[in-house]
């Protein structure tokens, strides 16, 4: 039986990945992760690609751009999703070139303004849907707001 096209998820390890896992928890397709570290041993993702991490190194971003093209052409995903960090930038560009639908959710950790990656993706229109997790930031930036990836409330704490 032919498999449904996968969803490629690009998220740095740590908080970005945590948010991505919450946000994609209802997706009933193969989820393919691209991250800077592979610390997972669960079943959330079908495959994991590990790439080099950088914030500002243009050379690594350039290399990652070609890696991104290769992954997107190989996977032919239904769509791509990211919660950042900066490793998502070359993938956002590659998604634009390969006409892969890209949904970006700006990280919850930026409470007062968009993340740097979010600003670049927004500025250059490298997205099909752009959401952020704080209502005031959404109002200022023109992003969509549908709440946060997980609830910050007091869950039964004494």
């Amino acid at each position: 039986m032919k498999r449904k096209p996968s969803i490629v998820v690009v998220a740095s390890s740590g908080g970005h990945l945590t948010q991505a896992m919450c946000a994609t928890s209802l997706v009933k397709r193969d989820l393919v992760l691209v991250s800077n570290k592979n610390m997972l041993d669960g079943s959330h993702f079908t495959r994991v690609y590990t790439i080099r991490d950088t914030q500002y190194n243009v050379l690594i971003h350039a290399v990652n751009f070609f890696v991104a093209l290769k992954i997107l052409l190989k996977e032919r995903p239904r769509a791509m999703f990211s919660t950042g960090g900066p490793i998502c930038l070359p993938f956002a560009l590659a998604a634009k070139i390969t006409r892969t639908r890209f949904v970006f959710l700006d990280t919850m950790s930026r409470v007062t303004e968009l993340s740097n990656s979010g600003k670049i993706i927004k500025k250059y229109g490298l997205y099909d849907s752009f959401l952020c997790q704080w209502e005031a930031v959404a109002n200022d930036s023109g992003a969509e707001y549908h709440g946060q990836a997980f609830d910050l409330g007091d869950h039964g704490h004494q």
Binding site: I7, C22, L26, V27, K28, L131, H146, A149, D151, H155
Partner: peptide, 16 residues
């Protein structure tokens, strides 16, 4: 479970 499933459903719709 502290996942926000309302947001997860919106993301699911946008991706699939």
């Amino acid at each position: 479970d502290i996942t926000n499933y309302d947001l997860a459903e919106i993301i699911n719709q946008k991706l699939t």
